[in-house]
């Protein structure tokens, strides 16, 4: 089973938007999802009317957003029966688009997002450990056993899905909601580091330890493990941004993208 991302994290791509510059926000949300592989090549986006309803914006705003995506070469619009907007991005994340995305966000914004994401996830993990029933730990363990960490896209989907599962086990509706919103906003960027096989291996091993901590009811350990994982992913992102700003590549020379 390659992609285990639960519907929440994926569907949050289409969650309501706030503030100004909405067409750009529509384009940003969908661009992130496409270039980071959450929406895959050939996939049809919801209709313009549906997107407008889901994002909570006017139809014209959605159309403007889709124009930006078309000009970026990320979607094509087909007319007639069976028509709509289709993702045309290749399966591997596009380096140029990723560079542009990472240049467009500052280190201080990345830091702040990472702190916030870590804080939410630490709380989720600690509460999950304190509140999970033995059956819950079993289910989480089974879920993780089915998760594939061998490939980039699958690892991103599973890492995001695991965060959502932890949030659910916290039994807090607010934490689940915030986790879903935050993953839509920051998840695709934060999880970029999973393109590095060594990072994938460490995240997979860490998540196994998190399940053990949840089973043992060890809240502080679950918190510490999740904090360490988010820190590593955030540090990877900072380093990648610095490489790009210096004219280098997304990945360090030693890392091989799968």
């Amino acid at each position: 089973m390659e992609a285990q991302l639960r519907p929440g994290a994926r569907e949050a791509i289409f969650a309501q938007l706030i503030e100004a510059g909405r067409a750009e926000q529509v384009a940003r949300r969908l661009t992130d999802a496409i270039i980071l592989g959450v929406l895959t090549s050939g996939e049809r986006l919801p209709s313009e009317q549906e997107l407008a309803r889901r994002f909570g914006v006017a139809l014209i705003t959605v159309r403007e957003g889709l124009v930006i995506l078309r000009e970026s070469g990320l979607v094509e619009t087909r007319r007639g029966r069976g028509g709509g907007s289709f993702v045309i991005q290749a399966d591997a994340p596009d380096e140029t688009l990723l560079h542009t995305r990472l240049r467009g966000v500052t280190h201080v914004e990345l830091s702040d997002l990472a702190v916030y994401f870590a804080t939410i996830m630490e709380g989720c993990a600690e509460r999950a450990a304190l509140r999970a029933a033995p059956d819950d730990a079993d289910r989480l363990s089974e879920w993780l056993a089915l998760a594939d960490w061998d490939r980039d896209a699958g690892a991103r989907a599973n890492a995001g899905g695991f965060y959502l599962e932890l949030a659910v086990l916290s039994q807090s509706a607010r934490l689940v909601r915030e986790q879903v919103r935050l993953q839509a906003e920051f998840g695709p960027l934060l999880l970029l580091g999973l393109a590095d096989p060594s990072v994938r291996a460490r995240v997979a091993a860490c998540n196994t330890d998190v399940v053990a901590a949840v089973r043992a009811g060890d809240g502080p350990l679950a918190r510490t493990l999740v904090a360490g994982q988010v820190r590593e992913l955030a540090e990877w992102l900072h380093a990648a941004k610095t490489r790009i700003e210096r004219g280098g590549t997304l990945h360090a020379a030693s890392a091989v993208s799968a």
């Binding site: 519907p7 959502l164 949030a167 659910v168 916290s170 039994q171 879903v180």
Partner: peptide
Amino acid sequence: GPYVDHLCTFDF
């Protein structure tokens, strides 16, 4: 349940 539904309501 009770549980937090992460499919549609996102509620307890």
